[in-house]
């Protein structure tokens, strides 16, 4: 059993907020800048009994869409959740190897700082049961932003970016859960980009949506690519072909 009184020392790295920092170029694709690199990564569940990820070597390129495809249970979502250390919340996890974010191993970073730079959109739309405004300002408020004007600007910009502003501008104080499924998912994306992250992780964001809402999300991803690096897990090969620049195939 782990010693519960032993806390892992986490450092806060100010370099992560510097977007002008020169990133190393990939050896295989010399044009691309590497933002995440995964080296000999192993991941286990159940105290090492279940070997979920085996020898992963992968590079994620800046401002590109990388799609993860593969059969069910092959560990796509597991790897995705390793990027923002959401897997740390699961009991009995164990990892070997390392993931570097802008050259820094993520395990040494402060989780709050890492998660504010690496946003995540989940499979099921999961807006908080509060107003649309509060949903979007949740992240910035947690970081201590209190200025009403800047918060208003963040809400306007994020809703505009996801193309939701025209649809919800009259009901900005209504509950986020009162929107339709596709709108909820776009609200979740808006909530995520309100933190102005570098990377957006998307865990099958369209699997709970109808084709039209899916199409809207795909268009949105193509648009967001200009500003953000996107990693998307998908079961749909056509979708991967439509939206991704690079594709990682996972084998069982």
């Amino acid at each position: 059993m782990k010693n519960p009184f032993k806390f892992k020392k986490e450092i806060v790295n100010a370099d992560l907020f510097n977007n002008d920092l020169p990133l190393p170029h990939s050896e295989e694709y010399p044009d691309e800048e590497v933002i995440f690199s995964v080296k000999d990564f192993q991941f286990y569940y159940d105290n090492g009994e279940k070997h979920a990820l085996k020898d992963i070597n992968l590079e994620i390129f800046k401002k590109k869409v990388t799609a993860f495809i593969g059969p069910s249970g092959c560990g796509k979502s597991t790897l995705l959740r390793c990027f923002n250390r959401m897997n740390d919340l699961i009991d009995g996890n164990k990892k070997e190897g390392e993931i570097l974010y802008k050259g820094t191993p993520i395990d040494t970073l402060n989780t709050i700082q890492l998660r504010s730079k690496v946003g995540m959109v989940f499979q099921q739309p999961n807006p908080f049961p509060m107003s649309i405004y509060n949903n979007i300002t949740y992240g910035p408020k947690c970081q201590g932003l209190r200025n009403k004007k800047s918060l208003d600007k963040i809400v306007y910009d994020s809703l505009n970016d996801v193309g939701l502003y025209e649809e919800v501008k009259d009901q900005i104080s209504h509950s986020g859960t009162s929107l339709s499924g596709g709108q909820q998912q776009r609200l979740c994306i808006a909530r995520c980009i309100a933190m102005s992250p570098d990377i957006i992780l998307m865990d099958e964001p369209t699997s709970a949506l109808d084709p039209i809402a899916t199409l809207k999300i795909e268009e949105l991803i193509r648009k967001l690519k200009e500003k953000y690096t996107i990693i998307i897990v998908t079961h749909n090969m056509q979708q991967a072909a439509r939206i991704s620049d690079y594709t990682a195939f996972f084998m069982l």
Partner: peptide, 23 residues
Amino acid sequence: IPKSMISASLALGASNTETIFKI
């Protein structure tokens, strides 16, 4: 409370304390 809601809060960079008091 749905686990996904707590995950969403944590993934947005909220600490455990903030998640408890706000979610």
